[in-house]
Design a protein around this nucleic acid. Structure first.
Lengths: 338, 338
DNA sequence: TGCCCAGTTGACAACGTTGCACAAGACGTG
DNA sequence: CACGTCTTGTGCAACGTTGTCAACTGGGCA
């Protein structure tokens, strides 16, 4: 490994001067700078990050803690984070929890592993506010997607409003029995609870009944979950004429189950999803979905995190990100109402 | 930040002893070890990775260099790598290149940026053997998916054989005009060249003509690319009756374009993809695909990389990973031949 | 000529950790 | 009792970098 000292010796200057050249310190004679630079290139010197970080107390690594990187929503989000961080010279590390409480705790608590990250972007599944409060304040954390009620910076979309808009859209299509797939009743209040709230609010606003039978819980936001939930709904004596799915994967699974049963989307059952993953745009029918502004999520989260890393002491901030209901083929007017 | 010294002071022992406890050095009296451990827990000491690395020369960070994390194949692969590495106490960093040669070079050449990673897992798009040979040997690299002809450890599947099997499957279905989507003719020999070779070999073996019109190049392995390529094929005076797509995304795009044109899959046109991403299993029709053993890819790549990191000097090794043709609905016997 | 200032460069220490060498004590053996 | 050996714990140095501060240079000015 080539070090500053090697370069200094070769160039006949002090180590500090080489460091000054590397870091662009202004007060170096152009001729000397040129000379040092030549030696640097010649020897192929590259700064040792560990040493730099040891000195400076930063690693330049940001962890993205998510359930699974291969869930398309998280993959798309990770892409945005990767781009956002790389322009700032930071590196994105991925930590997958599978939604397991122990893994989440270990990573966010940071009580387990060595210090490594300058900051953590955390998308919790099982962690509750209580778990979170117990954590050793250490590394700055920004939460995404989930309101724990914890004292922590937080980037989210307005889940209640988004669900309300989605449900209302189905109502405006003339649908009367609107089911919901993806409720995950749990200990604390989680994202799905908020989305269910928006759904119910929309139904109430339209004076539609809230039928508990139409509220199908699913453990995970997967295609399989969507399939089973849809099958359950289709076996009801009075099946729904629309389904609001709390994720696009659920929606795609549900849609495939419905079509395999010989029904059509949107004629028999209209579908709205959530997340606006690319797959939904190419599905047949293409999927109407609540589209959170993922680039903005990444940008705002990074902004917030960096401000914390820089030591800003503002009180816990919540940032609301825009969303949009993107209407595609899977939700259409009922044929008889056209 | 709590350091070894803080713990040592509090526990009334030397810094070295605390380090010994942390690292499980055997010659520490059980009582003392217990005591030190208590203080460690009390103060919440956690080793500083930068310092450790500076001392020991390892970061415990492995970079996965891929075009885009939100391409499902890479997302699924990244998941496997994440799991594989985390059980070994290593951290997965994602670096996205978008397939851009400068980004690829910067990351693998490591000539540009500072040292950071113990090893690099590299999935090249644009980098050629020449680029690669020019790189400053520094950090161990294992290539996946691409044969550069470079002197480097390499984990791959037998692309020629896999494509041959896929194409042969279409031939056995009675298809006569089998198109290929996804050729990326470039400077050196790349993955797509190998797959095209397998495709041609299968056609030759069946004495079918090789029609250059049916060989549709696409710049990227995206759904959009599949759509445009399929549209081009459908406008031919004599369109194909089967398409072998070099990725599942291409296949899904192609399939959606075909169906939107009012044709049916597999009756009019049979489709086979490559990668076996989860989305293909849920598509309608579900997608026949060449399925590389992703878990094995991750396991073997990590094994190879770790052996290099441990300083093993074996000559460049190529590991072949099993694949399997998973037959689903998108490829079926021609109706008249059933 | 002497002095000051701005512009440059260098010496040193410190970041937190672990490898190395060795010291202090306990213990066994001749 | 002397000696060697094993166990247990310590002190020192070094990894490569940068912040601090002192020191040197040359030019302008009194």
């Amino acid at each position: 490994m080539v070090t500053l000292r090697d370069v200094a010796n070769r160039a006949g200057v002090s180590v500090r001067t080489v460091s000054n050249v590397v870091n662009g310190w202004p007060h170096v004679r152009p001729a000397l700078r040129q000379h040092v630079q030549t030696v640097i290139d010649e020897l192929g010197y590259r700064p040792n990050l560990a040493a730099r970080y040891l000195r400076g107390g930063r690693t330049g690594m940001i962890a993205l803690v998510i359930p699974e990187i291969d869930a398309p929503y998280f993959a798309e989000l990770a892409r945005c984070f990767g781009k956002e961080l790389s322009v700032k010279g930071l590196t994105l590390a991925i930590e997958q929890t599978d939604g397991l409480i122990e893994r989440e705790r270990a990573l966010v608590d940071s009580g387990s592993g060595p210090t490594m990250f300058d900051g953590i972007i955390f998308s919790p599944i099982s962690t509750t506010a209580a778990d979170f409060a117990r954590r050793r304040a250490d590394v700055p954390v920004v939460l995404i997607g989930e309101q724990l009620g914890a004292e922590c910076d937080h980037v989210q979309i307005d889940n209640i409003a988004a669900s309300q808009v989605a449900t209302q859209h189905l109502i405006e299509l003339g649908r009367q029995r609107i089911a919901l797939i993806g409720h995950q009743p749990g200990a604390g209040i989680n994202t799905s609870d908020l989305r269910v709230e928006g759904y119910k609010a929309a139904l109430r606003a339209a004076s539609l009944p809230i039928d508990p039978q139409l509220l199908t819980p699913t453990p995970l936001f997967t295609r399989d979950g969507g399939v089973s939930a849809a099958e359950a709904l289709l076996s009801l004596p009075e099946p729904p004429d629309a389904i609001f799915c709390l994720s696009d994967l659920l929606a795609l699974g549900a849609m495939s189950a419905i079509i395999r049963r010989g029904l059509t989307v949107p004629e028999d059952i209209a579908i709205v999803g959530f997340d606006d993953i690319e797959e939904g745009r190419f599905a047949r029918p293409s999927l109407t979905s609540v589209s959170p502004d993922k680039k903005a999520i990444a940008a705002q989260t990074v902004r917030l995190l960096l401000s914390r890393i820089d030591g800003e002491k503002h009180s816990p901030t919540t940032v609301d990100i825009d969303f949009e209901l993107v209407i595609r083929e899977s939700s259409q007017m009922r044929p008889e109402l056209r």
